[in-house]
């Protein structure tokens, strides 16, 4: 079967194409090993690109399309983890690391000044 229209063809409107591309780069290909649909040769990735471009063309918002896909495939399909009760450590741990580091360093600097 030939690839769907818009699987490998851009939208005429550069602004919409930019939106579509940005979304495709963060949607995970279902049949590949950890690639986004924006850089996969798989036919199903092509069909998903076509779906995204068609919907953006029709005026749908990228985040609405992402939500529609997550409704079907779960958070797995999006490379952008949501912030919820399962993923909060992802966002807290880096801040924690940095905070801990700053705390250790600043404590030692103060002690040094006194001495």
């Amino acid at each position: 079967m030939p690839a769907a229209k818009y699987a490998d063809e851009q939208l005429a409107d550069p602004g919409k194409e930019k939106q579509a591309k940005a979304l495709m780069e963060t949607i995970r290909c279902l049949v590949c090993q950890g690639q986004s649909i924006a850089d996969s040769n798989a036919e199903m990735a092509g069909d998903m690109r076509a779906l995204i471009r068609t919907r953006i063309e029709a005026g749908e918002k990228p985040e609405a399309i992402r939500a529609w896909l997550i409704e079907r495939y779960g958070d797995w399909v999006s490379f952008k983890p949501p912030l919820d009760e399962l993923t909060w450590p992802l966002y807290v741990v880096p801040v924690l690391f940095l905070g801990l580091g700053i705390w250790i360093v600043s404590g030692r600097l103060k002690r040094r000044r006194k001495g």
Binding site: T26, R28, G74, D75, W76, F79, P81, L86, T87, L90
Partner: peptide, 15 residues
């Protein structure tokens, strides 16, 4: 995440 809840998720370039 998967071993705790069984839910699959992806952490990729945007993160």
């Amino acid at each position: 995440a998967e071993s705790i809840t069984g839910e699959k998720l992806s952490v990729g370039p945007p993160y």
